[in-house]
């Protein structure tokens, strides 16, 4: 019992440290003007938040966050920076105040909503009493995969996942066309190299 309490305290401390780092990085991203530093710090932000997801036992979310947030979006943001300026313009005081108010209000609403959430691992929560239980009981006989998440995503909701994949593919294609990773960007760099 004693050992469990000690490890719980350690876990809570690790959570607090990681969330503090996230907070500091978020504030810094909002205050910095150099776009490159912002891209770097957003990479840090997603690495830390992915670590935090692992601590919360949401391993699949952490995988996605690490792959998309830390890996791909750094490259995408740098590709976007190739097409724009290096520093952001300073904002007027009012245009800084309005987003701040929105953030405070949304945060207050979220904290208010989180009061009604069931406790972690509560056996009476809707997750554990509704269809989730039936999935847990039936999925292996229906599909034969040992992993529940895989059998729900890839089989019970197969068409849904197919649609999502199409949407993500379309979005990726649109981003690639806009950033011009292909011939346009190559022609651009050759032209620039020739001019120098």
């Amino acid at each position: 019992m004693e050992a469990v309490a000690v490890s719980d305290v350690g876990l809570a401390l690790a959570n607090i440290v990681l969330l503090t780092i996230l907070f500091v990085v978020g504030i810094a991203i909002a205050r910095l003007r150099s776009l490159f530093a912002i891209v770097m710090l957003s990479g840090v932000y997603s690495l830390v938040s992915a670590t935090w997801f692992v601590l919360l036992d949401a391993v699949d979310v952490a995988f996605t966050e690490a792959a998309v947030g830390a890996g791909l979006s750094t490259a995408l943001l740098l590709g976007g920076m190739l097409l724009t300026a290096r520093t952001a313009k300073a904002e007027k005081p009012f245009s800084r105040l309005a987003p701040f108010l929105v953030v405070v209000v949304v945060g207050a609403i979220l904290i208010y909503a989180s009061v009604d959430l069931p406790a972690l691992g509560d056996p009476d929560s809707p997750v554990n009493t509704g269809v989730g239980k039936e999935y847990l009981e039936r999925h292996y006989g229906d599909m034969g995969f040992p992993n529940v998440v895989t059998s729900i995503l890839a089989s019970y909701r197969g068409f849904d996942t197919l649609g999502e994949t199409a949407v993500v593919f379309t979005a990726g294609l649109a981003v690639a066309l806009l950033l011009g990773f292909g011939e346009r960007s190559l022609a651009e760099s050759i032209r620039k190299g020739g001019r120098k």
Binding site: A66, A67, G71, T74, S185, K192
Partner: peptide
């Protein structure tokens, strides 16, 4: 969790390559 740590190491490498290409060539198409 070591598997996830391994994935992080790989991904870190991707973004490092992107950053270095950005500085050296100003383009990813190299």
């Amino acid at each position: 969790f070591l598997d996830i740590a391994l994935l992080y190491a790989l991904i870190n490498f991707v973004s490092t390559i992107a950053i270095l290409k950005f500085f050296r060539y100003r383009s990813f198409q190299v």
